[in-house]
Design a protein around this nucleic acid. Structure first.
Lengths: 341, 341
DNA sequence: TTGTATGCGTTATCAT
DNA sequence: ATGATAACGCATACAA
C-alpha cells in the first residue's frame, strides 16, 4: 500500500512536504499541494492509522464494554439502543468504536488481558461502560485506570455517569397505578445491580408515601429478561390467598412472561389483573393490550455518554466529572386498568 | 506509559532482548526472561498495538459493516444476533471488532472516507458485511477491495458468503401452511434486497408446485420491520372480496402489525385467520398464540462468517471462496391453524 | 516554501 | 545468549 514515501518519490519532494501537503498546512504552496494530492490519488494512497497513532498518541478510537448477564450486550435491547445512539454520536465526531472483549482468547495477544490491559493495548482515547455487574474486579480496574471513562447506569467516584432516572420512573409508575385505584401492587424486581436496588428502594419509598401496604410476598426477585422466571413469579403471586391487583415487572420482556402465566389461568388483562413493564421497547406498544411501561430515553443516554466522553478526551483539564440523569416517562398503554376492588 | 525501552533501561539489557524475552523466544535465557517479565510487571508495561501493527502489518482487528434501512444494524434483532455470534467467535480467536462507519464526520480524519478507505485506514485484517443494500456503490467498492471479505445473505463474485436458506425456509413454511389445509395464502414481502427477491421467487415456485393459485392481490410489498406498513397491507388483504385464509409476513416484527389489524376487526388467530412470521425471534415464542415462523440460525451464521473470514486472513493462499448456506427451520407455533374452508 | 532529522514502540536481521 | 541497527509510516521541530 502506497505510503508518504512513495508519493514523495513520485513527486520529487520530501516526505515532510508530502505530509504537510496532505494535511493542508499553510506553509506549502498550492501548486505543490495539488501535485501531491494528485499523486496520492493516482497511487491509491491510504493513511495508516497505526503510524499516525504512534506519532500523535491518539487513536480516535473508543472502547466499548457492554456486558449483560449473558456476557454480551448486543442482543440486549436496552443496551443495543444505547450503544446504537452512542455509536452514531461518536462517529459524527470522528471516533470509531471497538469492543473491549471478554479476554478469553487462546494463544493470541489478547489472551489473558484484563479489560484495562486490553484498553491500554489498543490505546483507546476513552471508554464507555454499560454493565450489569459493576462489582466485577476487572470492571473496577478499568474504571480506576487512567483512560477517560463514562459509565452508564452506575455511579463511581470521580467518573462521569449517565443515569436513567430509575427512581423517578418507578415512583411515577407506582403512582400511576395508585391513581388507577390499585392498592395491592406487587413488584417483581431484578437483583444484584444497583439499578435494581434503586428501583426497589423507590418502590418501597413511594408505597410508603402513598400509604400503601406492601406484604413481603408481593416483592419477588427475578433476573432481568428472564421470561420463565417472571412467569413463575407471577404464578406465585396469583397463588397467594390475597393476590395483588397489579404486578410490576423488571422489564418489558419479563412482562411477556407475566402475560403468559396470567392468560394460562384464563384471566384477562387489564380487566382481571393489571400489569406494567419497564424500558419502553418498541414492541410494548404493539401488543394487545398495549403494555403500560416506563420509557427510558436510550437515545439521549447514548448521545450524552458520547458527548461527555469526547469532551473529556478533548479537554481533560477543563471537563468536569458529572452525574447526569436522563428522565424517564410513564408510557400509559392499556395494561393497567381501573381497579374497583 | 512504559515501553520496551524503559524495561531495557531498568534491566540493563537491550531493547531487542526485552522484546524477545516478552515474546518468549527460544534464544533468551530463562533468567533474563524472568527478570524482564518482572520489570515489565513492575513498570506497568503495556504493549502498543499501533507499534506492533506498524511492524507486523497485521492489526488483529476486523471491520464490521452492518447497515439496515435505518442506517444502523444494532437495533435490528436479526443483525444483532448474527453480530453477537460473530463477535464471540472472533474474540475467541484473538480478533477485535471495530465498526466501519457511515463516513459522515465533520473535520475529522474519517470525514469523507468511503467504507473501503476507512477499512484501509484502520488496516483491518478482514471485513464482514451484512447489509440490506448491496447495490450501494461504497459497499461494492469495499467488496472489490484487497481486504478479505465475507458477506452475509448476499453472493458476490469471488467472495465467501454466508447465506440463510431463505428459499428453503419459504418453501417449508408455505408447504406447512398448505398441509394445514390452506389454499389461499397471501405473501407480504420485503422489497429491494436479494433476500426479499429470493423469498418471493421461492413462494411463487412452491405455490406452483403445490398447485396453488396466487392472485396478484395476495402479494404485497412492505418494508422489513415496518409494523405500520404490515398493518395496512393486512387490512388491504382482509378487504378483498375473496380474502386469504393465511398471511405470511416478511418478519416476526411485521407479524405484530398483522396481529393488530386482525384483532382490530375482531377476528381470532388462528381460528378465523392464520398468520406466520419469519426470523424466529425469541419473542415469537412468547406471544399468544405462539407465532408460527421460520427460525434462522443466526448463531451459526455469525460463527461461520467469523471462522471463514479468519481462515482467509490466516491462510490467504489455501483458503477457498465458498458459498455456505445455513439451514432454516419452520417453528410451528400456533398461529397457523387447520383450514377447513 | 521546502527539506533534514528525529523519534514514536516494536520486530527482525545479523553480528558478536 | 545478547546486542546493535534498521525499518515500519508518519508528524514535527528546526534548518535552509
Amino acid at each position: 500500500m502506497a505510503s508518504l514515501k512513495d508519493i514523495a518519490k513520485e513527486c520529487g519532494v520530501s516526505v515532510a512536504t508530502v505530509s504537510k501537503a496532505l494535511n493542508d498546512q499553510a506553509d506549502i504552496s498550492s501548486q505543490t499541494k495539488e501535485k501531491v494530492r494528485a499523486a496520492a490519488e493516482r497511487l491509491g494512497y491510504s493513511p495508516n492509522a497505526a503510524a499516525i497513532s504512534l506519532k500523535t498518541d491518539r487513536t480516535e478510537n473508543i472502547g466499548v464494554l457492554f456486558v449483560d448477564e449473558a456476557r454480551s450486550g448486543l442482543t440486549h435491547e436496552f443496551f443495543a439502543r444505547i450503544l446504537d445512539s452512542f455509536k452514531r454520536t461518536a462517529e459524527a465526531h470522528g471516533y470509531d468504536i471497538t469492543f473491549i472483549n471478554s479476554s478469553s482468547a487462546n494463544g493470541s495477544r489478547l489472551a489473558r488481558m484484563s479489560y484495562l490491559e486490553h484498553a491500554r493495548y489498543r490505546r483507546f482515547d476513552g471508554v464507555v461502560i454499560a454493565c450489569v455487574d459493576f462489582t466485577d474486579p476487572e470492571v473496577i480496574e478499568l474504571i480506576g485506570g487512567e483512560i477517560p471513562v463514562v459509565t452508564i447506569d452506575h455511579i463511581f467516584n470521580n467518573r462521569t455517569a449517565i443515569l436513567s432516572d430509575n427512581i423517578g420512573g418507578v415512583k411515577d409508575l407506582t403512582t400511576y397505578c395508585y391513581n388507577k385505584g390499585h392498592r395491592k401492587i406487587a413488584f417483581i424486581h431484578g437483583s444484584k445491580s444497583t439499578v435494581a436496588q434503586n428501583r426497589l428502594s423507590s418502590f418501597y419509598r413511594t408505597a410508603e408515601q402513598l400509604g400503601l401496604e406492601v406484604p413481603d410476598a408481593y416483592v419477588i426477585p427475578s433476573d432481568y429478561r428472564n421470561l420463565e422466571a417472571a412467569c413463575r413469579a407471577t404464578e406465585q403471586l396469583l397463588d397467594l390467598p390475597d393476590p395483588p391487583t397489579c404486578i410490576l415487572y423488571p422489564d418489558d420482556y419479563s412482562a411477556f412472561g407475566g402475560i403468559k402465566a396470567i392468560r394460562r389461568r384464563g384471566l384477562r388483562i387489564p380487566e382481571d389483573i393489571s400489569i406494567a413493564g419497564f424500558d419502553g421497547t418498541p414492541i410494548a406498544e404493539q401488543i394487545d393490550p398495549r403494555l403500560t411501561t416506563v420509557a427510558q430515553n436510550t437515545e439521549e443516554m447514548g448521545r450524552l455518554a458520547a458527548m461527555h466522553l469526547i469532551e473529556e478526551i478533548r479537554h481533560p483539564k477543563t471537563s468536569l466529572v458529572e452525574v447526569i440523569t436522563v428522565g424517564t416517562e410513564v408510557s400509559p398503554g392499556e395494561s393497567v386498568g381501573t381497579c374497583r376492588k
